[in-house]
């Protein structure tokens, strides 16, 4: 699994409006432009932030990607996905 490509995709989905639109329209088609394997596609489509961190993806990117693109965008849900029991769930996004 390429940490570098995952980071490129997550960074695009965190900050680039065009990439966000294309991902929302057709995530598989958007991801087909990048050289990632099936496991990488799965992690992104399933918002497997824990799995991505385990392969070395920077947590600031997994958090930004979650806040921008996940279905409920809440940090409390993000924390649960990581296996955290943190009660502190304030988002860095306004």
């Amino acid at each position: 699994m390429s940490r570098d490509v995952l980071e490129r995709i997550l960074w695009s989905l965190s900050v680039d409006r065009f990439s966000k639109e294309k991902f929302r329209e057709n995530p598989q088609k958007f991801l087909s432009r990048f050289p990632i394997d099936e496991e990488g596609v799965r992690m992104i489509l399933e918002f497997d932030v824990k799995g991505m961190q385990e392969v070395g993806v920077n947590p600031m990117l997994t958090l930004g990607y979650w806040i921008e693109m996940s279905p409920d965008r809440r940090v409390s849900s993000y924390n649960r996905k990581l296996g955290s029991d943190s009660a502190h769930s304030a988002s860095i996004k306004g």
Binding site: K50, N58, P59, N79, L82, S84
Partner: peptide, 9 residues
């Protein structure tokens, strides 16, 4: 701790 499971510590 930012974006990791220890957030809030």
């Amino acid at each position: 701790w930012v974006g990791v499971k220890e957030t809030g510590k």
